[in-house]
């Protein structure tokens, strides 16, 4: 379980439309701060800002929970949503939801593969189909990742959701038959044949409007 990071945050300037306007948040981003919002538990919504470095520290620590220090008042929050820019380089905005440690929450957790699959030595490829899973657990017991041992996997073997060994109190919100990772035979993808190539040369079929077809039938 990842520890909740303690982060100092600042409220946004209430004199300037609570600091929530486009120009205000752009100015904040230029200063290296990220706008965010705290909500939940039927309390008021609080617009805040936090340091860019603190957010990246949370990302590196794979920490879902944080303890935000807002002017001496500490709130335990869960990262509910992250907005990225179009290139996925910068975080534009964060949503924090107030939680208590015993509260049952839903969140996405990364899957971490452990070991070297035995099937790779036999000429297989390890293919990971699912990279994160939605879990339900108490907020105080969110695992930093779900560890999957792939060392025993031979060719055509796989690990399904039902095979996962989860920490106590954690349930996965997915079908039991969902395949997470498997070892497939190398080079099974068929190269395009000549027949397929000939077929491809032809132009696409044009979907004719139904109205005209009906008129012809009349």
């Amino acid at each position: 379980m990842a520890e909740a990071l303690k982060i100092r945050v600042e409220p946004r300037d209430p004199a300037r439309n609570k600091g929530t306007g486009t120009r205000a948040v752009r100015r904040l981003r230029r200063q290296g701060r990220i706008p965010a919002v705290i909500y939940g538990h039927k309390q008021e919504v609080v617009p805040i800002t936090l340091s860019h470095d603190d957010v990246w520290q949370m990302i590196k620590a794979a920490s879902h929970l944080a303890e935000l220090d807002l002017g001496g008042k500490t709130e335990t929050v869960l990262i509910r949503d992250v907005q990225w820019d179009n290139l996925g380089k910068e975080i534009l905005h964060l949503d924090f939801a107030r939680v208590s440690a015993e509260e049952e929450i839903e969140t996405d957790v990364n899957i971490e593969l452990r070991g070297q699959a035995a099937g790779i030595a036999e000429g297989g490829i390890l293919e990971q189909l699912v990279h994160s899973l939605r879990i339900k657990c108490p907020a105080g017991a969110i695992p930093s990742s779900i560890k999957v041992d792939v060392g025993h996997l031979n060719v055509d073997d796989g690990v399904y959701v039902r095979d996962l060994s989860l920490p106590p109190g954690v349930t996965v919100d997915a079908e039991e038959d969902l395949l997470i990772v498997h070892v497939v035979v190398r080079g099974t993808t068929a190269e395009p044949t000549e027949a397929a190539a000939e077929e491809a040369v032809a132009q696409p079929e044009v979907i004719k409007p139904e109205r005209k077809e009906k008129e012809k039938a009349d």
Binding site: A196, A200, I207
Partner: peptide, 24 residues
């Protein structure tokens, strides 16, 4: 084998301009 659609509503399309950033 070059990719192309199997079925289209209209064979030819207008040129258009590429504006904005990818959101999907």
């Amino acid at each position: 084998m070059a990719l192309m659609p199997k079925r289209v509503k209209f064979r030819k399309s207008q040129k258009g301009r590429v504006r904005g950033n990818a959101t999907r």
